[in-house]
């Protein structure tokens, strides 16, 4: 596995909805090596506060060495990133971690909640390259409201997948949580990929276990390095002890994870 540090140039910054931004950066070496589910560690500035890099999933890889990040402003680091504009430099390390396994044994279902949609878009595109077409694959997406869901949903449906949407406030699609959409879909799929808030991933993981469907989850933990040296990104595993999200993950087989109830 090769990792690069690139002082990349921002080529575009788009505000998608309220506090959700899409940043396009020129990072040819990272883009060329990236696999769906992998992430980058982003330096949000040159000063000592914030000190640590921020982990962000690789949202999309464009053919000319650009890659895209999709993120929500939740604090200081993401706030600084949202303030970047074309021509400015951004220091990235990546691609990091182990991404999704790309060989589903049959129809697949991608389940994304909130910013969990970020890595799934890259996955959805890559699956189209390794398989003949979307076929019976399906995508379930959820967000707080229409504003947050509309644009990402349009991008996914542009790929030709069958989409099912849910919003917390009912302003678009099903009024409720994404996992509620899963029950209808599960009987016809062999592989589920999920990324989103922890409770949602846990619900999806348990539904898949009950249904006997393979499930891959992309986990989040606080990370000091993203490089396997701080051991700060521990997650408890069913076999006992811990694994490290930045090296062993962020994608895990759902049954490997010891889910907190």
């Amino acid at each position: 596995m090769t990792e690069f540090q690139e002082k990349s140039t921002v080529t575009a910054r788009e505000s998608l909805a309220g506090d959700v931004f899409r940043l396009t950066v020129q990072a040819p070496r990272i883009a060329a090596a990236a696999q769906p589910g992998q992430f980058v560690m982003v330096r949000t500035g040159d000063t000592l506060d914030p000190l640590l890099r921020r982990p962000l999933s690789i949202h999309q890889v464009l053919s000319d060495g650009r890659l895209r990040l999709l993120f929500k402003v939740v604090g200081k680091g993401t706030g600084l990133l949202a303030g970047l504009g074309p021509g400015l430099k951004i220091d990235l390390i990546g691609p990091l971690g182990r991404g999704f396994s790309l060989a589903p044994a049959g129809p697949a279902c991608l389940v994304g909640g909130g910013m969990g949609m970020a890595p799934l878009y890259f996955l959805a595109r890559r699956l189209l390259q390794v398989r003949p077409g979307p076929g019976d694959d399906q995508i379930l997406l959820g967000a707080r409201n229409r504003a947050e869901l509309e644009l990402p949903a349009a991008e996914f449906s542009g790929l030709g997948y069958r989409l099912h949407l849910a919003t917390d406030d009912g302003s678009l699609g099903h009024h409720g949580l994404v996992p509620e959409l899963l029950d209808d879909v599960l009987p016809s799929v062999r592989q589920v990929y999920v990324c989103g808030p922890y409770p949602m991933m846990r619900t999806v993981a348990l539904k898949c276990r009950t249904a006997g469907v393979a499930c891959q989850v992309s986990l989040e933990t606080h990370m000091a390095c993203g490089l396997g040296v701080c051991l700060g990104c521990a997650v408890a595993v069913a076999a006992g002890g811990y694994k490290h999200v930045c090296k062993d993950g962020p994608v895990f087989a759902a049954d490997e994870v010891l889910w907190k109830m």
Binding site: L48, D49, P50, L51, L52, T221, H222, M223, A224, C230, L231, G232, C233, A234, V235, A236, G240, G241, Y242
Partner: peptide
């Protein structure tokens, strides 16, 4: 990285948190 006679699993997460110009860690000598 510090080693002990027997392997150590380390502390439960969260193990790290950023603070102003620094960070706190409680890795637990994994």
């Amino acid at each position: 990285k510090g080693i002990s006679l027997a392997p150590r699993p380390g502390n439960p997460p969260p193990r790290v948190v950023e603070t102003a110009c620094g960070m706190l860690n409680a890795i637990g000598l994994e």
